[in-house]
């Protein structure tokens, strides 16, 4: 008897499309794109069974740069579109991606509720603490004293802590990655995809054009010295007290995952008539 012929394993290049990114040379998002393709190769899910969903912003251009199905929707609503998609099509692998403005500002409410809902999808935020596509305004993760044209002298507003908010809101997997560590990032994304429920990966991805000082990040980023925990309280304490450059999986939990009722028909539409009948 012949052994079944196994298809050749997919390499990362099988996930990279022929379209060239419009990002600035030197942008961290190039590395993230490469990490996403490497992560998908690790997971070995065929590209046509993956959907990359995004909103608006520099990083939200990522879907078309992969050979996966892509959905490039409106600003801030990527998680909503990704949630609807995953609930309606639980068989697909759904990766939602975007930036800090898209995810934490205009899409902030969806972020909270996507964490709560814990649908099995992966959310990657390429965080550069700035709105790049509109030429350099403060985002929710921007430092309060960062001077810019829209908020001269800085916004004076505390920056947002996405990781602890994700944890408090119910995300089942919380990690921080760094664009300058593409292999490490690929590994984290692969873990995020495999982990059940809502997996959130905050990726520090420097903006060379509007935040050139972020080149320093590569000197600050360091692997997390401790192993991931499934204890949310411990994870929260670590996240709140670390230096913001602690790279790795910070929480991998076992919170109940949203279950979709899609696909298990017990009745036909005509059967529903009974309740209207007199």
């Amino acid at each position: 008897m012949n052994a079944p012929t196994l298809p050749a394993p997919l390499t990362f290049s099988a996930y990279k499309s022929a379209y060239k990114p419009i990002w600035c040379p030197g942008c961290g998002d190039y590395s993230v794109l490469s990490s996403v393709t490497k992560a998908l190769a690790k997971v070995q899910v065929p590209p046509h069974e993956v959907v990359v969903v995004s909103g608006i912003g520099c990083s939200s251009r990522i879907p078309a740069y992969t050979t996966c199905y892509g959905f490039h929707g409106v600003h801030g609503r990527a998680l909503a579109a990704g949630t609807g998609l995953k609930v309606a099509r639980p068989d697909l692998t759904v990766v939602v991606a975007g930036g800090d403005g898209d995810g934490y500002s205009i899409g902030g409410n969806h972020f909270l509720h996507a964490c709560r809902r814990n649908v099995d999808l992966t959310y990657l935020v390429m965080d550069n603490h700035v709105y790049g596509m509109t030429k350099g305004q403060a985002s929710p993760t921007t430092e309060p004293d960062w001077d810019n044209k829209l908020s001269p002298g800085g916004t004076g507003v505390r920056s947002f802590h996405p990781l602890v908010i994700a944890l408090a809101s119910g995300a089942n997997f919380v990690a921080r990655a760094f664009a300058g560590d593409p292999n490490g990032t690929a590994d984290i994304i692969a873990q995020a995809i495999r982990h059940p429920g809502f997996s959130f990966v905050e990726i520090l991805s420097p903006c060379v054009t509007f935040r050139p000082e972020q080149k320093e990040w590569k000197k600050l980023a360091h692997p997390s010295p401790v192993a991931p925990t499934d204890d949310a309280a411990r994870a929260a304490r670590r996240i709140m007290t670390d230096d913001g450059f602690n790279i790795g999986v910070l929480y991998a939990g076992d919170r109940p995952v949203y279950r979709s009722s899609t696909g298990k028909a017990k009745l036909t539409p005509a059967d529903l008539e009974a309740e209207f009948l007199l």
């Binding site: 959905f71 909503a80 949630t83 609807g84 998609l85 995953k86 909270l112």
Partner: peptide, 18 residues
């Protein structure tokens, strides 16, 4: 969580063929 989400959820699901 709101109508912004509901319409985009419907669009996402329909994009998936449902």
């Amino acid at each position: 969580e709101d109508e912004l989400a509901s319409v985009n959820m419907a669009i996402g699901a329909s994009y998936g063929g449902v």
